[in-house]
């Protein structure tokens, strides 16, 4: 036998299920008070979710328009339920959702742009790094097998087929200022990988391009290779030059 608490739980679940239901109340012409009320909750949910996505994905919003974003939002609400109480945490799966839609067939770059925007959003909210200056003294140790480079937790090393950083920058301009020829070039069939690092510097997200070697180095650092292993693998790597960039750009937490 169900307890009264269970029954209350079920009734609250039932209301949520009606609000999240894909069957729109908008089609119901003979509306009673309950239907009108439910429609308001459904609209509120959609509008709030669309707004939450548009804040995280401003370039996607600009490229596909609000109507298409609303359509994606409806689908995303069923794939990724909001669950933390903070809309800022919701929407990570937009990129993978786009890959399952017709939109992706016509505009394959959208999934990568969405992925890039999500990383920017996450980086913007992450806790940045303070360099442990004293830890740099470990560089002078004889045995570098037990010395490891500690990178900022906001730093992410990524590869994209499309130049998503340039596409994103172009869309920071007003719509009438965007050079459509330049955009067309950026969106054409990709021929090479674009390697980038996203990180937080002075509390704001930053993006830098990486060479193939720089990217491989960072991936190995993140994988936990010791300084000794790194220097053995990257014989010609300019460690001191890289360290000064890493400190300047706030990639580095220190050495451990």
């Amino acid at each position: 036998m169900q307890s009264e608490l269970d029954i209350l739980c079920r009734r609250q679940e039932a209301l949520i299920a009606l609000i999240f239901s894909e069957q729109s109340m908008l089609e119901n012409k003979e509306e009673d008070q309950m239907s009108k009320g439910l429609k308001i909750y459904q609209n509120n949910l959609l509008m709030t979710a669309v707004r939450a996505l548009s804040l995280k994905y401003p370039v996607i919003d600009k490229m596909i328009g609000r109507e298409a974003l609303s359509g994606l939002t409806r689908k995303l609400l069923h794939i990724e339920l909001p669950a933390s109480g903070d809309w800022a945490d919701w929407g990570e799966q937009l990129s993978s959702l786009i890959m399952t839609t017709e939109l992706y067939d016509q505009h394959p770059y959208l999934a990568e742009i969405a992925s890039f925007e999500w990383f920017l959003h996450e980086t913007a909210r992450g806790v940045g790094t303070e360099l442990n200056v004293n830890s740099l003294a470990r560089l002078s140790e004889q045995n570098l097998k037990s010395v490891f480079i500690q990178l900022s937790k906001t730093l992410k090393v990524l590869s994209f087929h499309y130049p998503v950083d340039e596409i994103w920058m172009l869309h920071q301009l007003d719509e009438n200022q965007i050079d459509t020829n330049e955009l067309a070039v950026l969106l054409k069939e990709p021929i090479e990988l674009h390697r980038i690092v996203i990180y937080q510097r002075e509390a704001v997200p930053c993006v830098e391009r990486l060479t193939e070697q720089e990217q491989a180095w960072l991936i190995d650092v993140l994988a936990g290779l010791s300084l000794d292993q790194l220097l053995e693998k990257y014989v010609t790597f300019d460690l001191s030059g890289w360290l000064s960039v890493a400190i300047e750009e706030q990639w580095l937490e220190g050495l451990r």
């Binding site: 509120n44 949910l45 709030t48 339920l81 909001p82 109480g85």
Partner: peptide
């Protein structure tokens, strides 16, 4: 605001009324 939907935890994203 907190409940379950199809067996998964969900936040309604809105202020839902009480009985």
């Amino acid at each position: 605001t907190w409940s379950n939907l199809n067996g998964n935890a969900v936040h309604a994203g809105d202020l839902l009324p009480l009985e």
